[in-house]
């Protein structure tokens, strides 16, 4: 076996056998994906539920339209109590031709919606009953807007973040622990090039990043989360690799300064956490104030996020890789150069 191959195998085994690392590489980011994905799943998609007592033409029309969700009650008092308790915004009580709507004063938006909808159906029925043709016609049609469902921006964001975290920690901790345990010295005493050592570690990191990508996207695509991939999703792969290498270089820089694994961990967190929050990992950065958006542009993670979002879910083509790719490559070159200047073989 060549030194490159066996070092790669050695590091891969070390990675797979380290349960803590496995947890922070796969489960920890996945927890964020699952929690945020489930919390935000139904945002803006909920239909309003109301209580209904009795039946009739209007109720059937409402039911067929699917605009409101109807919860049937036999007893008027029980239905009104639901409204009083704040569980439902309104109760519709039907007595033949007479429709009474009792709505909660506290939930003004919900009750106004219900009042408007029910009113519309009643007017329409009245109009139909007169036999007159309508003077004005009205048609409503759905439009797929550009704003994304939460899972659509969460997946690229958390994927970029997870990849960044494991690349930074992977390289920083390996470097520090190898230097502290004198493995670096031991390797330097063998006829093997620094390139072989470095490239085998990069290979393991990029391999891990690809597995992370497959797992995160795979889970986000489960029906319960409902991620929809765009046709150009495969453009995320080169972006993933460039991002891994960029953050690997950042980890080498952190590892060059840190003396112990604890210090390296802390330093890596200080670098990665603020960057994650400001780069749109957990919320779309477009919702942030303007100055924050400007600040976030200095972070490579922001550009990786943008690129991931554009190719994974927005369906943009290869041109969407240009800026993120250039930023990540530039970042890698600068940081790797600095890291190589401050690199130390021993304590």
């Amino acid at each position: 076996m060549t030194a490159f191959k066996s070092l790669s195998v050695a590091m891969l085994k070390g990675f797979i056998r380290d349960k803590v690392t496995l947890f922070f590489t796969f489960l920890f980011p996945l927890m964020f994906l699952v929690i945020f994905g489930l919390i935000l799943r139904d945002v803006g998609t909920d239909k309003t539920r109301i209580a209904v007592v009795g039946d009739g033409q209007i109720v059937s029309a409402l039911r067929d339209s699917g605009v409101l969700e109807l919860e049937p009650y036999n007893d008027e008092n029980a239905a009104v109590q639901k409204v009083k308790d704040g569980d439902l915004p309104a109760a519709l009580i039907v007595r033949g031709q007479q429709l009474d709507l009792r709505f909660a004063q506290s939930d003004q938006v919900g009750s106004a919606t219900v009042v408007g909808i029910v009113n519309g159906f009643v007017d329409k029925a009245n109009l139909a009953a007169t036999g007159q043709p309508p003077r004005f016609t009205f048609a409503a049609e759905k439009v797929e807007d550009a704003s994304l469902k939460p899972i659509q921006y969460l997946t690229p964001g958390i994927l970029s973040w997870g990849v960044a975290v494991s690349a930074v920690f992977g390289s920083a901790l390996t470097l520090v622990s190898w230097r502290r345990k004198q493995v670096l010295r031991r390797i330097r005493l063998a006829p093997v090039s620094a390139t072989a050592v470095l490239s085998s570690r990069v290979l393991v990191s990029t391999g891990v990043a690809l597995v992370q990508g497959a797992i995160f996207v795979g889970i986000a695509m489960l029906p319960v989360f409902g991620l929809q991939l765009s046709g150009s999703w495969w453009l995320a792969i080169p972006l993933l690799l460039l991002g891994t290498i960029a953050f690997f270089a950042l980890g080498m820089l952190v590892g060059a300064f840190a003396k112990t694994e604890e210090a390296a961990s802390a330093a890596a967190n200080i670098v990665v956490l603020p960057m994650a929050f400001l780069s749109g990992t957990f919320f779309p950065v477009e919702q942030a104030p303007g100055w924050l958006q400007a600040v976030s542009k200095i972070f490579p993670l922001r550009h990786m996020n943008d690129g991931m979002l554009n190719v994974l879910v927005r369906g943009k083509g290869i041109e969407a890789l240009l800026l993120p790719g250039a930023v990540l490559i530039g970042f890698t070159l600068v940081i790797a150069f600095i890291a190589s200047r401050v690199f130390k073989w021993e304590e």
Binding site: M1, K5, D18, V183, A190
Partner: peptide, 28 residues
């Protein structure tokens, strides 16, 4: 030359045999 350093310089989480095979592979 073969060098044993003062600290026990090993790769993380590898078995005794794997340590030897990894170091051995550095020398072919």
């Amino acid at each position: 030359i073969g060098v044993q350093l003062q600290a026990s310089s090993f790769f993380e989480k590898l078995t005794a045999k794997e340590q030897l095979q990894t170091f051995g592979s550095l020398y072919g």
